[in-house]
Simulated assay, not measured.
Amino acid sequence: MKKILVTGALGQIGSELVAKLSDEYGSHNIIATDIRSGCYEGPFEIVDVTNAQRLYEVAKKHDVDTIMHLAAMLSAKAEEAPKKAWDINMGGLLNALEVARELDLQFFTPSSIGAFGPSTPKDMTPQDTLQRPTTMYGVNKVSGELLCDYYYERFGVDTRGVRFPGLISYVTPPGGGTTDYAVEIYYEAVRNRYYTSPIAEHTYMDMMYMPDALHAIVTLMEADPAKLKHRNAFNIAAISAAPKDFANAIRKYLPDFVLDYQVDPMRQKIAESWPNRIDASAAKEEWGFRAAYDLDAMTRDMLEKIAEKTQVKRSS
């Protein structure tokens, strides 16, 4: 990778990925794009990924060699507007893949644990397994995995991707995902010492701290292609946790934190259709994936960073 176009650059992943890529490759080599303007010191373009011609023109103009396609509608939002989600998630992906094919670019797009469904094995979910999701977001992600495989096999596009678990970050607000509670709980713990979870107490899902997710993207994209047996949709994981686990981890630092529950039926149904814990051995073996943060290390860092960000003093 030398010059990289990022779609969805103002989103939860995109905003932090652009910063990391700028540090790694120089901000002048990272072209950030989104449907609205934003604050970024490097090149920035307004791009709606459903506009194929505009996406092609921007990639050609900046002579990029890589597309990192992040623009998408997330799980909970997609259930509220399934047709719009299909148009953005699948139409945008197809347009981005076509640009990569036409300009011979390396290509990354993330899949998700949402690509699994109720009939998928729940514990140590295999890399290759039954995928029958029951959400529009999940259908989009499975379709996207297959489409990226097709563009590699049929056209030789160097497509790569991971299945992200729920991502946790203090930098950018969550954007309508089922795992958003795992970000909100830290903010509310610092601000109010109280949080009402929309997910039931013992509902386990895989999570990951954003620094590990960003490192995984760069590591995969720099990996030797000859070693990639799967290439797209690698399982990656770091933390399997339920709301009660987050609460217990937070109470090590904020003993007076209180967690309550008011379960959102739609989000709970989505959460229950996803794995409890996935097997990331293929990513470890094929390109050396490793997560640096466990639940305690992430909790400590999240609470410290949020306290600094919101200027709220945290008791020890």
Rank of each mutant, 00 (worst) to 15 (best):
V18W: 00
R36E: 15
R36L: 15
D48Y: 08
Y25E: 11
L10R: 13
S75V: 09
S15E: 06
V64H: 02
S22A: 14
M73C: 12
K77F: 14
Q12A: 10
G8V: 00
V47R: 03
D65T: 02
I46E: 00
A72F: 11
I31K: 04
T7N: 03
R54P: 03
A19G: 10
K60P: 11
S27K: 15
V18Q: 00
A59P: 10
H69Q: 04
T50W: 07
V49S: 10
G38E: 01
G14F: 06
V18K: 00
K60F: 15
A59K: 08
G11I: 07
I31E: 04
Y56R: 07
H69R: 06
E57K: 09
S27N: 13
E79R: 09
T66V: 01
H62Q: 11
E41P: 08
I67Q: 01
R54A: 11
M73E: 13
A52Y: 06
D48N: 15
C39Y: 14
K20I: 13
E45R: 13
A72N: 07
A72R: 07
L21P: 02
D63Y: 09
H69I: 09
A72H: 04
I31V: 15
A76P: 04
L55V: 12
G14E: 05
Y40L: 08
K77A: 15
T50A: 11
K61N: 05
S22I: 10
L17G: 06
H28D: 15
G42S: 04
T33V: 11
A9H: 01
V58W: 00
Y56V: 07
E79N: 06
Y25P: 05
I31S: 12
S75Q: 05
A78V: 06
T7Y: 03
D34W: 09
K77H: 14
D63E: 15
G26T: 09
A78G: 15
I13G: 01
A32L: 05
I30P: 04
T33A: 05
T66A: 01
T50S: 10
A9Q: 02
L74E: 04
T7S: 09
S15H: 06
L70H: 01
T33R: 01
S15T: 09
L70W: 00
S27M: 13
A32I: 05
Y40F: 15
E57D: 14
M68G: 01
D63L: 12
A76L: 13
Y25T: 09
E57Y: 04
A76S: 14
V64P: 01
D63K: 15
A72E: 05
I67D: 00
H69D: 03
Y40I: 12
D48F: 08
K60G: 08
D65Y: 04
G11N: 06
N29H: 10
Y56C: 04
G26F: 05
I30A: 08
M73L: 13
K60I: 12
A71K: 03
A9N: 03
G11S: 07
E79P: 06
S27A: 14
T50F: 05
N29A: 11
D63H: 14
T33M: 03
L70I: 04
D65E: 00
Q53S: 14
P43T: 11
A19L: 15
D63F: 12
A76Q: 08
M68Y: 13
E16W: 13
Y56E: 07
A59S: 12
T50V: 14
L10Y: 09
A9I: 03
S37N: 10
S75I: 07
L70P: 02
K20W: 11
I30F: 11
V58F: 00
A59R: 05
L21W: 02
D63W: 05
